[in-house]
Lab assay of single mutants.
Amino acid sequence: RGITCLDHENEKVNMYCVSDDQLICALCKLVGRHRDHQVASLNDR
């Protein structure tokens, strides 16, 4: 089922925000508060 995003409840987390040490979803990176932050794919970890 996967872990859902805290900010976007219908989205699954699939990225890690290095700047905030937090799991995020694609919407967080595209339009959310993490858009200018350094992120890594969970597949890279």
Results as ranks from 00 to 15, higher is better:
35 R>D: 05
23 L>Q: 14
24 I>T: 08
28 C>L: 00
32 G>W: 00
20 D>S: 02
32 G>I: 02
35 R>L: 04
3 I>F: 12
28 C>M: 00
22 Q>T: 10
29 K>Q: 11
43 N>P: 13
35 R>I: 15
21 D>I: 00
23 L>S: 11
43 N>H: 11
31 V>I: 09
36 D>C: 04
2 G>F: 01
20 D>E: 08
5 C>V: 01
2 G>L: 05
26 A>W: 11
40 A>T: 09
21 D>H: 04
23 L>P: 15
32 G>E: 05
36 D>H: 07
18 V>R: 13
22 Q>M: 13
40 A>S: 13
39 V>K: 02
22 Q>S: 12
14 N>S: 13
39 V>R: 04
45 R>K: 12
17 C>G: 07
17 C>R: 04
32 G>D: 03
41 S>F: 03
36 D>E: 12
25 C>S: 00
29 K>I: 10
40 A>P: 03
43 N>M: 05
22 Q>V: 11
12 K>R: 10
11 E>I: 03
26 A>N: 15
22 Q>W: 02
27 L>G: 10
38 Q>Y: 07
43 N>R: 07
45 R>H: 15
30 L>T: 13
8 H>Q: 02
2 G>N: 15
5 C>F: 00
32 G>C: 01
37 H>P: 01
1 R>N: 11
24 I>E: 07
8 H>R: 01
39 V>E: 07
42 L>H: 06
3 I>K: 11
38 Q>T: 06
11 E>T: 05
28 C>R: 00
10 N>F: 01
6 L>P: 15
23 L>E: 15
45 R>V: 08
38 Q>I: 03
4 T>S: 08
34 H>S: 03
1 R>I: 06
3 I>D: 14
3 I>M: 14
21 D>P: 00
19 S>E: 13
40 A>N: 09
5 C>E: 04
40 A>L: 05
25 C>K: 00
32 G>R: 01
27 L>Y: 04
35 R>S: 11
34 H>N: 02
19 S>R: 10
14 N>C: 06
25 C>R: 00
41 S>T: 11
13 V>R: 09
30 L>M: 11
31 V>D: 11
3 I>N: 15
8 H>N: 04
41 S>N: 14
33 R>G: 12
27 L>P: 05
33 R>E: 11
36 D>I: 03
43 N>I: 04
41 S>A: 09
31 V>L: 08
37 H>D: 04
12 K>I: 05
3 I>C: 08
21 D>R: 09
3 I>A: 07
4 T>P: 04
34 H>P: 01
37 H>G: 04
26 A>Q: 11
20 D>R: 01
26 A>Y: 09
6 L>D: 14
32 G>A: 02
18 V>I: 07
27 L>D: 10
38 Q>G: 06
43 N>Y: 14
35 R>T: 06
26 A>D: 14
32 G>V: 02
44 D>Q: 05
32 G>L: 01
26 A>K: 10
2 G>E: 14
11 E>W: 05
20 D>C: 06
22 Q>K: 13
20 D>Y: 00
16 Y>K: 15
24 I>V: 13
3 I>P: 03
42 L>R: 09
6 L>F: 10
37 H>A: 04
33 R>Q: 11
41 S>E: 13
14 N>H: 14
14 N>L: 08
8 H>P: 03
43 N>K: 15
27 L>Q: 15
7 D>K: 04
39 V>L: 09
10 N>I: 06
10 N>E: 01
4 T>K: 06
20 D>M: 00
5 C>D: 03
18 V>S: 12
32 G>H: 06
17 C>E: 07
26 A>M: 03
